[in-house]
């Protein structure tokens, strides 16, 4: 069964040094996420959801236990292997978009494909497809400062999705958006999840996001408080 899982987490701990002591951000986390899930890590600030998302994104490593992402044990990867995993298989969506301000919309979305060394023709097709998914084909020459918050987040989604990654990690993607834009963004991601079978893992405490999730993992003080699967007919 485990082989079909995109993410397998076993007895994961994450501790940070604080002064002379340690702060335990995550404690005994055990979770499996299957391919195509649309899942949220839900909890208040400081509950450990971003820390867990960072570990799943190979931006951080566990202090103990294991996190297997697409068959890669995060704690065992070298810097180059971790970078390669992010480059090929992961997509990130951030609360503050993290777009490259001096690049155009097109260049921002093209960036992950440049790292994959695809040809210009392939890149162009894939960028235009991604921008079509998020409805921004008319903004290819604009730069992020010329866009609204909602448009910026749609660019960020296009950038995360353009290489059709197996897993997208979204950290508070709607935190800076109004309700209308939030729903638009979430619907876009839901559609992409359904059509491309991409696994989405959110870190959020936004009710709007929570309402779209098909699985909710509640975190409290670094521990799993509740793991709730929403059945389609519920």
């Amino acid at each position: 069964m485990e082989s079909s899982n995109t993410i397998i987490i076993k007895g994961l701990y994450k501790r940070f040094p604080v002064g002379k002591g340690e702060f335990t951000a995550l404690s005994d986390i055990n979770l499996n996420f299957a391919q195509g899930e649309f899942t949220g890590l839900i909890g208040p600030s400081g509950s450990g959801k971003t820390t867990l998302l960072n570990i799943l994104g190979s931006l951080d490593v566990p202090s103990a236990g294991e996190a297997l992402v697409l068959g890669n044990s995060i704690g065992m990867l070298s810097a180059r292997e971790a970078a390669n995993l992010r480059k090929v298989s992961l997509g990130f969506i951030f609360q503050s978009y993290n777009l490259l301000a001096v690049h155009t919309v097109y260049e921002n979305v093209e960036f992950p494909l440049l790292l994959l060394k695809l040809s210009a023709t392939e890149r162009h097709k894939m960028v235009m497809d991604a921008l079509e998914w998020v409805g921004l084909t008319d903004k290819i020459k604009s730069k992020p400062p010329q866009l609204s918050g909602g448009q910026c987040q749609r660019v960020a989604i296009a950038r995360a999705m353009v290489k059709k990654p197996s897993l997208v990690l979204a950290d508070e993607p709607t935190a800076n958006l109004d309700a209308a834009n939030s729903h638009h963004i979430l619907k876009t991601m839901e559609t992409l999840n359904r059509e491309l079978k991409t696994t989405f893992v959110f870190a959020t405490h936004d009710d709007k996001v929570i309402s779209y999730l098909r699985r909710k993992v509640f975190l409290l003080d670094g521990r799993i408080d509740k793991d709730e699967i929403i059945h389609p007919n519920s």
Binding site: G57, L59, A79, R80, A83, N84, R86, K87, V88, F92, F94, S96, N98, L99, L100, A101, F111, P112, L115, R159
Partner: peptide
């Protein structure tokens, strides 16, 4: 710094 973090998140190593 955010941009640097973004490069790393998108698949660059820190050395790159």
């Amino acid at each position: 710094q955010k941009e640097i973090g973004t490069y790393v998140a998108l698949g660059y190593t820190k050395q790159q």
